[in-house]
């Protein structure tokens, strides 16, 4: 089954290499393919471009209401990550304005598509977390649907615990990793 692809601002490049073909053995993170495309090259893991998953945006929860100003000129709302409580897929009230701004943008831009990327913290088993991440993303999908967004504009992809935004075994880190990212 063929999946439609949304436009996604990061990681267009696959560094997939079957071992037969991949003799150079570049084992360090990053590789060379992406830097030139996104400006995400190097650094200590904070890609500033694109999807808003980077650590630098985590603290910026005050964006919620300000995002409304972005839609007047038809731009994608700035805040593209919302966070969840432990073991929960409930939309926290402080993020409802963020979701509402995305819903408005998607309604007004019928050709625009978004991938809702669901994430969990690292605790628990990987495939079970894959399912929990999907639950979170579906919770956002339902919210958008209730707000009148066409299902054809929205796709859910769970990453489970595979793409942590931050590393470490503490509650602060876990909280940053329990999230859904809007990837346009």
């Amino acid at each position: 089954m063929q999946l439609k692809r949304g436009l996604k601002p990061y990681a267009r490049t696959l560094a997939v290499a079957l071992s037969l073909a991949f003799v150079a053995g570049c084992s360090s993170g990053g590789g060379t393919q992406d830097g030139s495309m996104d400006g995400t090259r190097g650094g200590a893991g904070n890609g500033v471009a694109g999807s808003g998953v980077s650590g630098s945006q985590v603290g910026g929860t005050g964006f919620g209401s300000g995002a409304a100003g972005q839609e007047a000129d038809g731009r994608i709302p700035q805040q593209r990550t919302i966070y969840f409580e432990f073991d929960s897929d409930r939309i926290r009230s402080e993020f409802e304005p963020v979701l509402a701004s995305h819903a408005r943008y998607l309604r007004e831009n019928g050709n625009s598509r978004v991938v809702l990327q669901g994430h969990t913290d690292e605790r628990g088993t990987r495939e079970y977390n894959m399912a929990l991440g999907e639950r979170r993303a579906r919770s956002v999908e339902r919210f958008l649907s209730v707000q009148g967004v066409s299902p054809s504009q929205v796709e859910v992809v769970s990453y489970g615990e595979e793409r942590p935004a931050a590393r470490g075994q503490n509650e602060e880190t876990y909280a940053q990793n329990r999230r859904v990212v809007f990837a346009y």
């Binding site: 990061y10 990681a11 490049t13 696959l14 560094a15 997939v16 290499a17 079957l18 071992s19 991949f22 053995g25 084992s27 360090s28 993170g29 990053g30 590789g31 992406d34 995400t40 650094g43 893991g45 904070n46 890609g47 694109g50 999807s51 998953v53 980077s54 650590g55 990453y159 489970g160 595979e162 793409r163 942590p164 935004a165 931050a166 590393r167």
Partner: peptide, 30 residues
């Protein structure tokens, strides 16, 4: 290795004692 959008995932096969590892697949995606 890495976090967030800057990650590299590599699938290896090695002897049961961890030696003689060989790369099967490498990707920036999980």
């Amino acid at each position: 290795q890495g976090v967030g959008d800057n990650m590299q995932f590599t699938l290896y096969v090695a002897d049961a004692d961890g030696r003689n590892s060989q790369q099967v697949l490498s990707s920036r995606e999980p």
